[in-house]
């Protein structure tokens, strides 16, 4: 009954052409996280949950469901199957194109409804603090003469940091051995324990060990420095980490963090969530989250977001083809 009413209301809104957010959620909203609890996507979802509930942005409760199986593939299948359900959201990272390309999974983000891009995440080249490397150049020189090859490690096979490791090999003409662990956390500990030579973790994944003096950042895989100038470890801030291209390592890579809905939802439903996320990114909780994780604020929605996705996907396809990560 209520649903029929809203469908009619939505239809009326379409006919009259007004863009007023006529739709509102009628039951709890599920945010599906394609990663395990505690990971960076999970933290983002829980921050969003906190921001919504503290500021009373939505009347319905927010539920977070972790579906980490198959590198997020299962979560994407779920969204694929839920076409038309306006009470589901999925957090997204580059995995939204990488997992289907690497596993031949029959899903495509074009079948989903893009809501908003919230931020971009940087990657940093980290080494164990006891090792003599001070700059990216030191590391590359050492890698050139190392036998067996130096070990890097990270999130998992054919994932973002594996791609970065291979990209570095190609750009610098070196050979590295990438060891896939089950996430950035273990990779950080393995680096602190000296079991690997370097990792390419996100700032948030490595900050604890950086502050404790067990790992050291060499450079950030971006064209410009990060913007956060608060002191983190000793007298270093995120902004003090030099960009890799400045150190002769011409590798840049960032990962999007965004939100999608299932396909076949109405324009009003999509608009409701776009507005919601516009409000969320203005909350103090969200700003604190960005700073804590040294994320690059980059809000996009609508055609702007879609254009970004298309370009980013093409770039990933290119990088993954060169790295031999595409399933055949």
């Amino acid at each position: 009954m209520r649903r029929a009413f809203w469908t009619m209301a939505a239809a009326a809104a379409v006919i009259s052409g007004t863009a007023a957010a006529a739709w509102e959620p009628s039951r709890p909203i599920e945010i599906i996280v394609p990663f395990p609890p505690g990971g960076s996507s999970d933290q983002m979802a829980r921050t969003i949950q906190a921001a919504i509930q503290k500021n009373n942005l939505v009347k319905q409760p927010i539920i977070i469901l972790n579906k980490p199986a198959a590198a997020g593939g299962e979560a994407m299948m779920e969204i694929q199957k839920s076409a038309g359900d306006p009470h589901k959201l999925i957090t997204t990272s580059s995995g939204i194109y990488m997992t289907p390309l690497a596993t031949k999974l029959p899903v495509n983000w074009r079948d989903f409804t893009p809501v908003a891009m919230l931020a971009q995440d940087d990657f940093v080249l980290w080494v164990n603090a006891q090792k003599p490397y001070r700059t990216a150049k030191d590391f590359i020189e050492a890698a050139k003469s190392a036998s067996p090859p130096l070990k890097t490690g990270g999130n998992g096979s054919k994932r973002e940091d594996n791609l970065l490791s291979v990209y570095m090999e190609q750009q610098a003409g070196i050979k590295l051995t990438y060891i896939p662990y089950q996430g950035g956390g273990p990779a950080s500990v393995q680096l602190a324990g000296g079991h690997i030579e370097a990792n390419m973790n996100n700032p948030a994944e490595e900050v604890a060990n950086w502050r404790a003096g067990s790992s050291r950042p060499l450079c950030v895989f971006a064209n410009k420095r990060m913007s956060y100038t608060a002191k983190i470890a000793g007298d270093m801030s995120w902004a003090d980490i030099p960009p890799c291209p400045e150190q002769g390592l011409n590798v840049t890579y960032q990962m999007l963090r965004g939100m999608f809905m299932p396909g076949k939802v109405t324009a009003e439903q999509q608009l409701f969530y776009v507005d919601l996320f516009k409000k969320i990114v203005e909350t103090p909780e969200w700003k604190e989250y960005l700073e804590r994780n040294a994320l690059v604020p980059d809000f996009r929605s609508g055609p702007d977001f879609v254009k970004f996705l298309e370009e980013d996907e093409a770039r990933h396809k290119d990088l993954m083809t060169k790295a031999g990560f595409i399933a055949n």
Binding site: R2, R3, S26, R27, P28, P61, I63
Partner: peptide, 16 residues
């Protein structure tokens, strides 16, 4: 516990 379980369309229309 806000754990959604499988529902028939009938139960779903009750607003959950």
């Amino acid at each position: 516990f806000l754990v959604p379980l499988p529902k028939s369309p009938f139960v779903a229309t009750l607003g959950f």
